[in-house]
Every structure is written in structure tokens, then in C-alpha cells.
Write a protein that binds this DNA or RNA. Structure first.
Lengths: 126, 126
DNA sequence: GGTGGTTGCTTTCATTATGCAAGTGACGCG
DNA sequence: CGCGTCACTTGCATAATGAAAGCAACCACC
């Protein structure tokens, strides 16, 4: 069941698509959730257990925002209490090249990072 | 005179290069400053007058952080009071593909955005 | 040579977001 | 039944953000 929450916020800072993109995914945590989804992780616990240690309240809020923005979707895997597994929509899938570019830059320019094998595959498809 | 402030913070959330990149440029404003620099804007007033309306205190702080991180550099263009013009380092230049990908995604998926001509040039070089 | 405007920041302070921690409800297992 | 886990939610302190004002040097004018 989509649309558990409100629609995406129409508050854009400008008409610039970079600013627009940042209004959707431009914070400390969102792209890390999308990275995990891109690696096939599906459930709350998967995201919560990532190395960066996202606070659970923020994780829950980001999942709602991303679903409202149409970047991810959810389907229930249990009824009571209602629980969902998450996945990238087409819109979300198309963030993979952004992730790949960011990973490449991070690997080349941020000391102490290393590209995991799972990421290398993504770099080949641009 | 480089190094007006401290060195880049060594506080990484994980070894992941995406997380590492986000630790440097992953907030609401930083990439917009880099976008402006990529478009040839050089001075404080140029950044401050961008359409998104970055608060000036945040602009000043981000310029310092980015210089400390080695993404931008500055050279004085006047002595008293000391004033600087800014530019991308090689490290900063290499964020252009990230910007380009982000712009493409924003244009395709965020309603109300439009790719300015200046950005289209960047897309050709990946 | 005072007056006003502009540039490039810095400072103050209210509002908002973040993040730690603890709580909750429905299982599942022994 | 008691204990643990999973998937969240809630409460609250602390940190980041953002609106606004302040300020110091220049410049242009008259």
C-alpha cells in the first residue's frame, strides 16, 4: 500500500536541478540509505545496522520522506504490527550513477575510505 | 596564504567512500557553492547572491571548511581588510562529474527544475 | 571631506534538526 | 511464562541552521 504518508514537499529553493536534487537527497543520511538499498538491503534492521550507525528516529523519518518523494517504495511483509520492506523505484534506481560518482570521488580524495567490491560493479555502468 | 584555518577533520563515520564524500560535501549548501565555483564565480558576494539565498554565516563557515578540506583554495585580492577570491582545487574540479550527475537526476526527477545551459556543457565530459 | 552605497564578512539569537536513549507491541523460541 | 528480537516511536538535550543586524574598509559622489 503506497502513500502511507503525505505527498512530497513542493518547497524548492530554486529552479536549479542541483538544488532540487539536494532538496530531496541532500543531507547527511539519505544517500547512505539509498546506497544500502542499491546493495540489495531491504529492511529497517539492515539500514540500522550499517557501519555509520544512523539514529533510528532519523532512519524512520527518512524512509517516510523518501517514499513520499517517490524514490523508494514499500510493501508489507507482515500484518500485525504492520511492517514493510523497502526497495528503490525507477526514480531511485537512477541515483546509482550519482552514488557511483560520489564513491569514486570519495575513494580518490577522502583519506581512510576504500571502495568495497560491491561498489565497483556499479562504476562500470557509468 | 593558504591554511588560514585548521586542517580537515579526520572524523569519518565509516570506511565507505560514499560516507566519506558525504562527510565532506554532504549537506544542504556545500555543493551549491561548488556549483557556483564550477560556473566561474569567485567571490563571497557571488555565492551570497545565488538564487537559493544561503545565509551569510553559513557561507563563511563552509568556505573555511572547504578550504581546510582542500576542495577550494583562496587568494587575497586586497589587504585591509583581508579579502579573498576562491577557486576549485584539482580535488574540487573532480566533483564536477558528481554535480553533472546530480543535475541530470534533478532535471529528470524533480518537478520545477530546469537545466541551465551552463550545466549542459558539463554533461558532455561525463 | 562628509554622505551614502557596496562588499565581505562576523555576531547574535530564535528556530529546527540531529542524535542518544529508552519505550512499545507483536511475534518466536525454549 | 520469560527472554530476546525486530521494527519502530517517543522524549529530550545538544548542535546546526537561518534571519537579521552589526561592522570595517573601501568607493563614488558632490
Amino acid at each position: 500500500m503506497p502513500n502511507r504518508r503525505a505527498s512530497a514537499s513542493p518547497v524548492l529553493r530554486s529552479g536549479c536541478p542541483i538544488a532540487g536534487a539536494l532538496d530531496v537527497i541532500g543531507d547527511r543520511w539519505t544517500l547512505l540509505i539509498i546506497r544500502d538499498l542499491a546493495h540489495g538491503r531491504r529492511r529497517y534492521g539492515d539500514f540500522a545496522s550499517a557501519a555509520e550507525g544512523i539514529p533510528t528516529n532519523i532512519l524512520a523519518e527518512r524512509l517516510k520522506r523518501l517514499e513520499a518523494a517517490g524514490v523508494i517504495d514499500s510493501e508489507p511483509y507482515q500484518q500485525n504490527p504492520p511492517r514493510y520492506s523497502y526497495g528503490l523505484t525507477a526514480k531511485g534506481e537512477e541515483l546509482k550513477p550519482v552514488l557511483a560518482r560520489l564513491a569514486l570521488w570519495g575513494k580518490q580524495h577522502v583519506r581512510g575510505t576504500r571502495l568495497p567490491d560491491a561498489m565497483k560493479a556499479m562504476l562500470t555502468k557509468s
